[in-house]
Amino acid sequence: MRIAVLSGKGGTGKTFISVNLAYVIKNAAYLDCDVEEPNGDLYFKGDKIVKQVDVDIPVIDHDACTLCGKCADFCRFNALAIIIDKVRVFSSLCHSCGGCKLVCPVSAITEVKKSIGTIKETEFEGHRVIGGEMNIKEETGVKIIDEIIEISKDILEDVVIDCPPGNGCSVMGSIKNADYCLLVAEPTIFGLHNLKMVYELTQVFEKKVGIVINKASQHKIINDFAESENIEVLLEVPFDKELGLINSNGEIAAKDMKYKHFFEKLADKLLVRKV
């Protein structure tokens, strides 16, 4: 089963839930798709195998270039510009669409590979851990996420996918082939607002969903929403200072018998759905 863990905003406990869930499911793989702020490896420490992720970017043959400007005009991302007497390429803006190469009348444009980030793999107590990290100054990490999902296609064991925050295109890439989406929310009006946003996204892609309430309190705002939309609340993790401390120090809470049962219960409920 492939379980994607999402939340509308950052800091609600996505990584906390995914890390501990993956930890209690035997041999489950953990994928860190939050490539802008990857934090999963703060928990799953270990030696890593690193692989570069490349995209194609244009290079200009300045001898052949006639400075006609067609490439710069075509590029909708403004990744090319005529600066004094040369066409310059701004690779961080390039979306690798290949358009400039197509429109160049004198075939002065070819493509080369450029690294936009890395994928790191490690083994942690029987769990395969795959995480991506985007290079600083890049604008989008979607290609890295695609690559992580591609690598994970061969995994036969259960998979937990720690998604990026928000409801943008990188989240769409992360949940692409998930069987189930687990939505993490805190019981505040902020939490509810962001939950609705991300729930809408999962419905466009017709995903099965369930909710985890983190820092659960007397305030039943998320439960009420879940009931009205007919979504199951699979787990409520009460606010607990000690639990918060363990997590903020980058430790796996499920290693502690006191907290293990939360995640085991969650795993049981999820894996029952496996077909």
Partner: peptide, 30 residues
């Protein structure tokens, strides 16, 4: 030609997924 896999062929129709299209204009051109 679409580098973003935004175009699909189903029910004998080519269609562009608006969520995946990045608006590069390569398809318009070709």
């Amino acid at each position: 030609s679409c580098k973003f896999s935004a175009i699909s062929f189903a029910d004998s129709m080519y269609e562009i997924n608006k969520h995946m299209c990045e608006g590069c204009g390569v398809c318009n051109y070709v």
